[in-house]
Amino acid sequence: MEVLLCVSDLATYFETEGKTVCAVDGVSFEIKRGETLGLVGESGCGKSVTALSIIRLIPTPPGKIVRGSVLFDGEDLLKLKESAMRRIRGNKISIIFQEPMTSLNPVFRVGHQIAEAAVLHRKISWNEAKELTVEMLARVEIPAPKERYYDYPHQMSGGMKQRAIIAMALICNPSLLIADEPTTALDVTIGAQILRLLRDLQSQLKMAILFITHDLGVVAEMAHRVAVMYAGKIVETADTLTLFERPLHPYTRALLASVPHLGKKTKRLFVIPGEVPDPLRFPSGCRFHPRCSSASDICRSRLPELRQYEDSHYVSCFNISSEAKEIPR
C-alpha cells in the first residue's frame, strides 16, 4: 500500500516561564492509505501534541514545531503557507476531538455547521451542501437526519453530538482522519457504538485514521498498527497483533500487564513503579529508565534509537536481546 502520511523526526516544544517543555521530541511514523494507526500513551506523553502538530494547530506562542517534516501525499505540510494549510484542514485531513460538548458552536444549528465545511472546501451551493449534510447525518446513523439538521447542539445527547462531529469531519471525504480520544468522554455502550461506526465508515470511505487513545482495549479493537508513545517519544511500533502478542519494549510489556483483563482475574495487578515523568524534567538517557526493571548503565546515559526487529516491528530499547524471550501474562 501507498504511504499517505510520513512523519519524520517531528519535535514540538513549548516555552513557558523561561522553561522548555519538550512535548514531542523526535517522533517518526508512517500511515498508509486506508490504514488505522493507533497512537497509545498516557497523559502528557505528547500524543495529542503530535496530532495538532501534523495539522499545524499548535498555539504559537508558546508552542513551536522546532524540527522534522510531515509529508502528506508527498507534500511537506510544515513548509506550506498558512492559506494552503487551511485548504487541507477539514478537507483532506480532518480531526475530531475528545469533548463532543465543546466541539460544536452552541449558537448555530448542527446541520448548518456541518454544511459550512462543505461549502467552504468543495465550492458547492448551500442547497447542495444541505443535501450532502443530510446524507452524511444518515451515514453516521443519526435517526431522522432531515429533522436533526435543524437541531442545536444542546438538543443532542453526547453520543449524537459525537456522531455529528464525525459527519462534519467526513463531509469533504478526507483521506486522513485524526481521532483524538473520540470515545473517552462517552459512556461504555455509547463509545462502543462510535467505535463500530468509525470502523464501518472507514471501510466505506477508504480513509486512513490516526487513532489517539490511552485505552489499550480501544487500540486492540481499532488499529491495524500501533505506535506506543512515552515521554515525547515513540518507544515501539508494530502491527496490532504483534504488539499485543510479542511486545518488546519494557514499557509496552508493563503497560499491558498492568491493565485488568476482563475474564482473567489475577490476585494482584502488575505495577509500573514511579510516576509518569514531568515533561519539564525528562530523565536523562532512556526516558523510561527510572521505572524500568531492566535498566542498566547505558540506559541512564544514552537515548536509545528506534531500531527494527522484525518486519515492521520497531523498538527503542538497549536490552531487547535479553528481554525478548517471553511475555509475562
Binding site: 494482584r268 505495577v271 513503579p273 514511579g274
Partner: peptide, 9 residues
C-alpha cells in the same frame, strides 16, 4: 519482571 510493587514503592 518481578518488581516490588504497591506499598513499598
Amino acid at each position: 519482571m518481578n518488581m516490588e510493587p504497591g506499598l513499598q514503592n
